[in-house]
Write a protein that binds this DNA or RNA. Structure first.
Lengths: 201, 201
DNA sequence: GGGATTTTGGACTTGCGAGTCCATTTTTTG
DNA sequence: CAAAAAATGGACTCGCAAGTCCAAAATCCC
């Protein structure tokens, strides 16, 4: 079904990354297929050869790329939330990542444009959220086992709240350009976790 | 400059609300000018007569409409955060409002589509956020004065965090369709405020 | 009432950009 | 090496939807 030569795979990758880059710089609305072709030195036929679904399929692939990137950029901290200093450096990483990213959030941009009526688009986002929340919950549970957080706390619900803090902070940053809300929300979330800490005996 | 007959004003309003309604139902991408014309029984010339800037100006007007609506839907609770039960009913109102709204967030949809390149679009959002945060901060300060929240808490920062909780919860709801994150985040935010309460003497 | 102004209808232009097609070149495979 | 399959170039079609224009109708103002 899909033999895909080495050269072919390279071209496909080039198109994909070129599209992602252009979207990161100019947003989805200002990204025509021709822009991608020009930037990647490819032709229409190549694009439709590797992405038979056309624009929509390409955008979906970009969404997947960006979604993976989101979690990758939080490594290794995200998977090692085993002490308060670790939580703090994770927090700093997140803030820094989004500060760097600036006002354009490629993922939000793409999914918003793809519309939530495309089942694929929301699947990508939903899966990202699930993985993200799951890793946070693992961190919370670890701290509970270490006696640093009240075991009565619902780890998943706390992780959900924390995730919302991040998303909201980022969303606000997209309009204001400031990361102050993100920082405030994250700090609050972590403070909340610590407040539920078992009183040291 | 703009005499605007009574009839003219009515037509303009009809177009504006028709556009907002169509966008709420179908999203921005799926809203062509012709759709609005058909729904409001008006013609191209009328639309461009009342919105000389065309589509962009219309969308911006819709954004303003929706932004106002967001705060209005939280009245009167938002301006009366003077007791813990009051905070709770505000929280319930917000959750309910967004549950009703479903997956489509007209404001986010419009601003995302208008791109953040339009200065007007982000101005609308920024102003909304400022007003929203300001009202929340007022509520926090009121509770501080009543001795229900630690006076050492930075009211504006707490309000910023709370705002991020809401935005994030809503954003996640847009993909998942669930309000669980919104609820978890809001509950956490309020719990955080209460945790900072002065120990009763 | 009547001239000025605003409102309205709707056909027309226009440009953009997605998607198609086919001929040609390159690579794989046996 | 030769046949088959894949990769590539780029011109072409085509539909949609934004925006323009002008003439006709309604309304306002004195």
């Amino acid at each position: 079904m899909r033999p895909l030569t080495r050269k072919g795979a390279a071209t496909r990758q080039r198109i994909l990354e070129g599209a992602a880059a252009h979207i990161r710089e100019h947003g989805v609305a200002a990204t025509a297929l021709d822009d991608v072709l020009a930037r990647t030195a490819t032709s229409k036929s190549q694009l439709f050869h590797y992405f038979p679904g056309g624009r929509e399929e390409l955008l979906l692939a970009v969404a997947r790329l960006e979604a993976d990137r989101v979690l990758e950029d939080q490594r290794p901290h995200l998977s090692d939330l085993t002490s308060w200093p670790a939580w703090q450096s994770w927090r700093d990483t997140v803030v820094d990542r989004y500060r760097r990213q600036g006002r354009l959030c490629p993922l939000n941009s793409v999914t918003a444009h793809l519309g939530n009526r495309t089942p694929g688009a929301q699947a990508v986002v939903t899966e990202l959220m699930n993985r993200w929340q799951s890793e946070l919950a693992t961190g919370v549970r670890h701290m509970q086992n270490a006696g640093e957080i009240d075991p009565a706390l619902d780890a998943d619900r706390a992780a959900a709240a924390l995730l919302a803090c991040i998303q909201g902070g980022v969303l606000i940053q997209m309009s204001t350009g400031q990361t102050t809300h993100l920082e405030a929300a994250l700090d609050m979330g972590i403070a909340y976790l610590r407040a539920g800490r078992l009183p040291s005996p």
